[in-house]
Simulated assay, not measured.
Amino acid sequence: MKVVFMGTPEFAVPSLRALADAFEVALVVTRPDAVRSRGKSLEPSPVKRCALELGLPVLEAARMTDDALAELKRCDADVFCVAAYGCILPDEVLTMAPAGCVNVHASLLPRWRGAAPIQRAILAGDEETGVSIMRIGQGVDTGAYCAQASCSVPGKTTSELTAELAELGGRLLVKMLPSIVAQTAPWREQDESLVTHAAKISKAELRLDPSDGALENARRVLASSDAAPARCVIAGKSARVTAAAAPVAPDGAVDAPGEGTYAISHGRLLLGCAGGALQVVSLKPDGKREMDAAAWAAGQREHAGAWGRLA
């Protein structure tokens, strides 16, 4: 079986590796080198790095130009496989391979169609999420799916859940591809009455807020990323909370802090929220390195004070 693979971020790498182990990958299509970290130099995408490591041919394309389309046609692939490529594919690409174009989507469709299914599942408090092997069509994640696999959500960060779903998706894609190419896969249309949408996460959504519950704030910390970190103001200074636990009870040596106040006791940093307290496990004050809460607390003169939402 001959496959063309399209993907860009780390999420797509396990799918590429699984395909390369099982089938002939004729071409890997990924977005061009870009500034991907705090440095100023261009860096290859994780998929490009993986493809080069595996000795696979790479086409860098931000959109499907005539030259890119010609390259795809020359591959004469049986099927195109996509995992978080990051570009809209024209109809010509969707129908170019005999078995069409299939996608690894990081949710249990029809729940969480869209750009941020993993973070939305965390923020919503979903008990489980998963991956779907779906056909790519005209709408955003509206195509039929032929297989799904699930995993639990509670307590997992965005990066942890992304890594787990990436591995799950790669295995499921390879399992289903022979039946997809043979036209025997059991395709199922999505139930439109069950659709939820996973819009891109904004920075404002992940700002911690004392007027919200401790559990809601804890989910913001789990869902946070470098692009949209969980931030707040503690003792008059802004910081990113990188790990937290909620809800928590006081340890007996200190009363539970009220809404909008913090308390330090035996190295624990508690942020009072509506109906409970959020325990900060680690944080990164602006302009400083990341540290655990005990180290931060040791440097504070006041063991109680105010905290609030970042303006």
Rank of each mutant, 00 (worst) to 15 (best):
W307R: 03
S132H: 09
L69P: 04
A198C: 03
A144I: 07
C50A: 15
A223T: 09
C151Q: 08
S179H: 14
V28P: 01
I201F: 09
T129L: 08
I133C: 08
R135M: 07
P14A: 05
T30V: 00
Q119W: 04
V93P: 02
E205Y: 11
E259G: 02
P178T: 12
D209R: 08
T196V: 08
D67N: 11
A62E: 13
E10Y: 09
R38C: 01
N103I: 01
A22M: 01
V280C: 00
Y145K: 14
A166D: 03
L270I: 03
L109F: 07
M134E: 09
K200A: 13
G258N: 06
A68C: 07
G39C: 05
L177H: 13
D226L: 15
A106E: 04
E127C: 12
G299V: 10
R309F: 00
Y85A: 06
V248L: 01
G236M: 05
S265G: 10
A293K: 00
R120T: 06
R135A: 05
R219M: 06
K40A: 13
L271C: 01
K284M: 09
E53T: 13
A115T: 12
V280D: 02
A70H: 10
P57R: 09
G258M: 09
A62P: 07
S41V: 15
L42W: 07
V82S: 09
G55K: 04
